[in-house]
Design a protein around this nucleic acid. Structure first.
Lengths: 203, 203, 203, 203
DNA sequence: AATGAATGAGAGTTCATTCAT
DNA sequence: TATGAATGAACTCTCATTCAT
């Protein structure tokens, strides 16, 4: 009995991933609202009717994409905290992982960043809360670093926001950067800039 | 004859502003695609039919908003270059002006940043080109500063992109920052960070 | 200004009648839920989009039909009270008028009687209230007749309900009656039955 | 072999009853067309797939309900003719039984009365035929009574229709009557009215 | 016999855009 | 220039029904 339920859940999860993949295919070409459920269903190789067995509303697809993204982000932090224990190492690792994830999931990131306002109130709150969690974790690493003397910095909360904001530079402004610089260059440059600030004296 | 044409153009400009203001009223509350022409026309205190005397397609409204925004941005640069001649002063002034403009026009900025993908190919190209102009101007100030020895920096193109990207931090992430910091604090902090980098040695 | 508003309202009323007539054409052939808005719009010789300029929801059409019907019913009562003053005459006249109206508007009557349960709570309440008004008026005539000694009857409220219920016998059971009897025969027969009761002694 | 078939049929009958009960649970709350097969299957504690082993189309459920109803009605007549032999007694008994059945099966009655138009042509004919059978039986009792001199009445066919029509007064108009009168009162009143007519002179 | 995932036609409704006035 | 009624394509979502297991 429990096993059957388990299988059912797995199937549902699989279908939801299928829907996400299909939706992403379409969302590369057009905005969420311009992508019709017919297109998404076709891209996911499902009938519309069946698609609606796994979601309630179109908006749910956005939520799935968002959840996928944040699952990936949390994996970044997990690896970081598993492998490193010094704040400086942790910060480098976290930024590197997050930046690379943002590059790999450029589409998803762009969708999340630009479509958030399509969400209903409840979902919007959830999304914003998750984003501020990310900032919170970065902030905590910085605060730790300040305590250990690794960093010298006022206003870690603000700086964490600046870091978080810059992590998405490729999805948002890649069109103007990638013709001239590789992702790795951009990452190195950002790290260089961040550490300039983190190591410095007061203004 | 020419005078009449002139008057006509003025009227058209006036109507376009009226449309922009109306649209913005609506776009504060909902996404572009969710805002119907009915609502926008009502908010602009025009009939739909008349509204269509001044635009061809809904997308044109986005273009108007974008043009307004960039007119404002260019005014920022004009004031900057009129009032300052040293690269360092120019950069501070430009960043300050642009940042404040972004804060004042938070709504417009957010609309432009999140709705760009709604645009048709031709309009999208135009918009992106204008954005990269802004980056170009910032870059030229930096390059100047490097020549005069005011700044010490590799890769001014990349850094200009970083600066440009951070100028929009309030429209994009204000929800997570403004509860804790004022706009002025954020601006000061950004300037502090930027100049840490601009003054520094190689990594 | 007022005149223009008046014209607009007239136009709207006209369109609503047009919709009603179109809907009735369709509703003769199928139940309300089985009639699609497309069919109704076509039967009303309107585009769907325009149809929705005059209604908010499909249910509104049912309400229009109902309002039409009740307007007709009230005209029956108005004529009755204008032309007759003796309770007995009034009752004969009212029953005659209502019965004939029910026969003329067989379709509408059937729709109202069978579709009431499709209505939303608020509209259902309104409809039921109007129906019980009709019963109330009949009851008041009977009560009057009892006072004047024209009728001899216990329980006028219940009898008014019986009368009201039988008025719709043609729309509801015409299929089994009209092959054998004319509407006039049925009316005469009902009047005969009713007056048997109204004139009689206690059971 | 035959026994197995018998068992199969019993099972089928049982399932059909199960479906009826489930459907009725749902149909108390919403109209037939608004009740989805999903809901009905759930209420009948069956899977949709299995439900379709016992019906062909949704409409069949309506037919089952109708058959149940008419089985009950025929039981009424059976008891009547078993227990009474005088036309007057028979008529009182039949009306009493039928009226009480209508009250007990208010929901079913309402469904049948209001959903008949949903039926396909063939089923509709069957339903109407069964209803006119009921009228026919009532008529035959009256005709008998006229022959024996118990009743004095013109047009027994029409009067049978009137009686039949009034039997459903509680399902149809109970909402306006039951707040003020008990079912028994209504029955007594109807009997009183009917016999006023049945005993009387010509109009 | 029993399950429920899958199908896809079709429902109500909205909306950018046009056009007669 | 100004109006807003009219158009109809396109949208999201539901549902009776089928079918592989």
């Amino acid at each position: 009995m429990r096993k059957i339920n388990r299988e059912k859940q797995d199937k549902a999860k699989f279908r939801q991933q299928q829907i996400c993949r299909g939706a992403l295919k379409v969302l590369k070409r057009k905005k969420f609202h311009a992508a019709s459920m017919r297109e998404i269903a076709a891209a996911a190789r499902m009938s519309i009717g069946n698609l609606y067995n796994y979601i309630d509303k179109k908006e749910d697809i956005l939520i799935f994409i968002h959840e996928n993204m944040f699952a990936r982000i949390h994996e970044c932090f997990e690896r970081t905290f598993r492998d490193y224990h010094e704040p400086q190492e942790q910060l480098v690792a976290a930024i590197t992982e997050l930046f690379k994830t943002a590059c790999q999931m450029k589409e998803e990131a762009l969708i999340i960043l630009t479509e958030a306002r399509s969400l209903g109130k409840k979902n919007l709150r959830k999304v914003l809360q998750r984003e501020s969690e990310v900032v919170g974790i970065i902030e905590s690493i910085i605060v730790n670093g300040i305590k250990t003397g690794a960093f010298k910095l006022e206003n870690p909360h603000l700086f964490a926001n600046v870091i978080a904001s810059n992590l998405w530079i490729i999805p948002l402004r890649g069109w103007n950067i990638l013709p001239y610089h590789t992702e790795q260059e951009v990452l190195d440059y950002l790290l260089f800039c961040f550490f300039k600030v983190l190591k410095g004296a007061k203004p």
